[in-house]
Design a protein around this nucleic acid. Sequence first.
DNA 1: TGATATAAATTGTTGAACAAAAATATTGTA
DNA 2: TACAATATTTTTGTTCAACAATTTATATCA
Lengths: 215, 215
Amino acid sequence: MTIDPPGLAEETASRLRNAIIGGALPPGQRLSETRLAADLGVSRNTLREVFRLLTREGLLRHEPNRGVFVAVPSMASIVDIYRVRRLIEVPALAHAWPRHAAVARMQAAVDAARAARQAQDWRSVGSANMEFHAAIVALTDSARLQAFFAQVVAELRLAFGLLDSPERLHEPYIDRNGEILDLLAAGQQARAAEVLAAYLDNSERVVLEAFARLG
Amino acid sequence: MTIDPPGLAEETASRLRNAIIGGALPPGQRLSETRLAADLGVSRNTLREVFRLLTREGLLRHEPNRGVFVAVPSMASIVDIYRVRRLIEVPALAHAWPRHAAVARMQAAVDAARAARQAQDWRSVGSANMEFHAAIVALTDSARLQAFFAQVVAELRLAFGLLDSPERLHEPYIDRNGEILDLLAAGQQARAAEVLAAYLDNSERVVLEAFARLG
DNA sequence: TGATATAAATTGTTGAACAAAAATATTGTA
DNA sequence: TACAATATTTTTGTTCAACAATTTATATCA
């Protein structure tokens, strides 16, 4: 059906990544090589290559001679992730060129989030919000920064999957993203960066609180 | 002799990484799976896992159905790498705590660089300088940032390997690093960050010029 | 019950196999 | 000779089967 070359391992990694982020495989879950290879319809060797990819992305944890497990997000990892986000996103926005191509991506993401809100589809709201922030990083035109950020976002979404009440987690930020976009489009980068910084502080606090409630 | 578990693939990756950065395998070189596997004394399967690791690090380039090649650094990649370095290193230094444990690492790196200069060992000077900057990133206490930076540094060293006159490339920065360290230790983070920013601008220009001379 | 020995399952790694694609050599022809 | 078409060889992409080393589960005994 679908063309797999080049990269059956990459394609499988993508499927497994979605399964993890989508919550089909809960954090801490142990992944048996033989069983999962059979389920995914690939060989053990190929699956091991997939494991390496996702381990490097922070989605899996590998314990020698014991196997691989779906990573369990910790408070420390969340704090670290938000530190990285602040460091990358805020300067990206502050130095942005308001007519950069990525601005259209930001706009599309805001529109998508609002549409998903209409449909009460909070998971899609979360995806759209993350796409908004990926677009912010794209303002830098740095391939390496974008790849790194994508990885960090995948980890963060893993943590989001653990938390309940996705509405409280995503809804408040849709219009804030719209506000940031408007400020950028109006050439007020500095102001936009300020709003983003406050956004990130707030979001981190909410996530950490929800996490603490999980015990 | 050496214990390989856990991770013969990782150990092999490390060896191959050194071979690439050390210049034993020139950029653009094609790496035959069977031949290299025999040379390294590992199986083809294991070597392919190694290839994935180093490809993700940017040290190898993979062309489907054609094989893997040692990456060829470009001007664009150098510009991108320096952008990333500025974005990460300068704020790391600006917000640093002068009594952080990583300051000792910075001091050790400066000492090592000076010792290597005495011995006219410019390759070691380069290594020590890079270790200095890795220590700067360690000031952030962010595991993700440190891992990302290590990757970027590996790529940069690949580019350095292409250039001749390593003295001109590394010597001028030894004492600048010392100056940055002294400023930080004296609690003048802002001043240290300024010097670092100028350092990076200057270094980028030198590298790009040397690159241009290569044609 | 609790510690210990035995058995079963799992990981880490290798080697061989084979289809598909690419690189190379060979041939046929103007 | 030069050039295109064809056949041959070499590589990559992927799977499967095997086996030692290690971990986990099970059974045994004081």
